[in-house]
Structures are given as structure tokens and as C-alpha cells.
Design a binder for these strands. Structure first.
Lengths: 154, 154
DNA sequence: TACGAGTGGTTGATGCGTCAACCACGGCCG
DNA sequence: CGGCCGTGGTTGACGCATCAACCACTCGTA
């Protein structure tokens, strides 16, 4: 409804387009490689990584908050992972509603195998593209955007 | 199988983590907002934008290459959009296999309505978080990564 | 003790993205 | 003319993400 919607200027447009393109290609490539090499999706990877980092046994909601997901996403994810034997669900004696998520031996093995592959790809596709200053600069920019997002509605 | 898999150093780790977090939150927020405001997914948006930019009528494969997608993705996407009346498929007289994708009036209207909303959200969530130097810096970094990716196998 | 609000977690529908297989046609070369 | 390869495009199955609705249990309070 606005007649003059303040389009982006060329520099802003370039920054946004470049960022979007880069992020799509990078994330796409990385997740396809990790998936092909280790039979794990990025979602599997992060869940298993955080879970084992934290000792391999966690309350469902704690895990969900740790990876900053919505509970329904985690519920579906855990269900798929349980079906494939990467994690198991246990009842919580203290709280009748609650559940523990436990990394199975197969899960631990999977993440230990996948982690070095993952980091190698991150290095090869991303880290190696940039100097340390560029990395620092990107880290600073990312944090600025994140901080900005937290202040912003939605 | 490698005993010492060269983990990332703290600065590298910080850069990667920050980037990933930022990119997830930013893209997630943006696409949810655009979807909520205009009933279009990011995929709908980009397809319709590129298509109308190019005159509103294009060969399927040309469109696919323009947005740098795989053909199967585009095929599914176009099918969904056609079902919702945003685009239409037409046969190609010159090439019996071929198809034209055409933006319908409803499609044109939808993108014209969505575009200002989209750019406002980009501005609010992203552009406004950063200075012009930071934007330039990010553009440069993005292009470095993109160039690096093209040289890299896969 | 009963009830209502909040928390923990699941479920089902729907859309999106990828992969692999497939079909249909065009163009080239014998 | 005939076969074959490449291109254009579709299809189906599957995993993933979101939304909204829902169930089950706990806890504070009257």
C-alpha cells in the first residue's frame, strides 16, 4: 500500500544478495557432504553433538532449549532418531510428563565418526576461504546482527 | 580414522558458530514474517520475482538456471504455485518437450504486494543492524566464500 | 481437596528440498 | 531412415520444519 517503499541502495542490495547466495550455497554443500559421508542430517548432527557434549543424557526440554529449537521440531526429530537407533527415550520418574533423551552406543559412535568429517568440511569450504581478520570481522558482524534481532519485535 | 582431526581454534570456532546462529535466526525470522504477511514462501517469492523481472514468461529450464535450482525442485515448486494460481504452464510449440512458465495476473499482484513487505523486513532485520562499512565487508567476505566454493570440488 | 493455569511433550497436516528413476522429444551420425 | 545420446521436464518417496491443536501431568491457590 505504500507508494514509495524505500528500496535498497546498490551497496545494500549487493550485500544482501551476496550474503543470501553465499549462505545458501555454503549450507547446502555442507549439509549434502555431511549427509553423504556420515548418513546424518545436520539436524541429527547437532542434536547428537549437543547431547553427548552434555553427557549423553538429558531432559527433553533442556535439550530443546540448548539447541534453541521449538519443542515440536525436537519431538519429531527425536522420534526419527529413535527409530534409527541413535537415541532412546526414557521415562522420568520425578515428573510423570517428562522424558529423558539418551544417546545410544550407536549414536555415540555415529557422532564420533561424523565430527571430524564435519569439521574438515567446515574448514575446507569456509575457514580456508578467509583470512583470520575476515573471520573475526564476520564473527563481529554476526554478533551485531544477532544482538539486533533480539531487540527487534517478532 | 584420523587420530588428530585438526579441530578449529577458538577464533575460527567463534566465527563459524556465530555465522551459523545468525544465519539460522535471520533467515528463519525473515521467512516466517514474509510468509505470515504475504502468504508466500521464500521460494514462491524468489521464483515469482525472477520470473516477473524477466517479463513474466520464461522457458522452464531458463527459469531454473536463473535461480540456480535443480530442475526437480523447480518442477515441484511450479506445480505447487500453479495449483495456487500464481503461475501457469504453457506448452512450447517449438519444442515438444518444453514448457513455458507464465506469471498469472494473480501472481503479478501477489509479488507486487509482497515485494515492499519483503524489502522492509530485510531492512529492519538485517540492513539496519549494520553500518555501510560492515555491509561492504560482509559483501566482500561473501564473495570470497562464493569464489572459494566454485574452485572447490563437489 | 479441588480446580485452573502453566509446563512437558506428542501428533497430524501441510509445504519444502533432495534423490533417483523415469518418460518424451530433438538432433546427430551412421 | 534408424538408432542413440543428450536435454527438458515429471514423478514418487522420503526426511525435515512449522503450525495448531491436543493430552497429561504438576503446582499453586482457594
Amino acid at each position: 500500500m505504500n507508494a514509495t517503499p524505500r528500496w535498497l541502495n546498490p551497496e545494500q542490495q549487493a550485500a544482501w544478495d551476496g550474503f543470501i547466495r553465499m549462505q545458501e550455497k555454503l549450507i547446502g554443500r555442507l549439509s549434502r557432504r555431511v549427509q553423504a559421508d556420515s548418513r546424518m542430517s545436520p539436524a541429527d548432527y547437532i542434536v547428537l553433538a549437543k547431547l553427548t557434549e552434555a553427557g549423553g543424557r538429558m531432559r527433553f526440554m533442556d535439550l530443546t532449549k540448548l539447541v534453541e529449537w521449538e519443542k515440536s521440531r525436537m519431538s519429531h526429530q527425536v522420534a526419527r532418531m529413535a527409530k534409527r537407533g541413535l537415541v532412546a527415550k526414557e521415562e522420568c520418574p520425578d515428573d510423570g510428563r517428562g522424558a529423558f533423551i539418551v544417546a545410544t552406543p550407536a549414536g555415540r559412535e555415529a557422532i564420533e565418526e561424523a565430527a571430524p568429517v564435519h569439521v574438515e568440511h567446515v574448514r575446507r569450504l569456509f575457514i580456508d576461504a578467509l583470512t583470520q581478520e575476515e573471520l573475526d570481522s564476520l564473527a563481529r558482524i554476526s554478533n551485531r546482527v544477532l544482538a539486533h534481532l533480539e531487540k527487534q519485535p517478532d
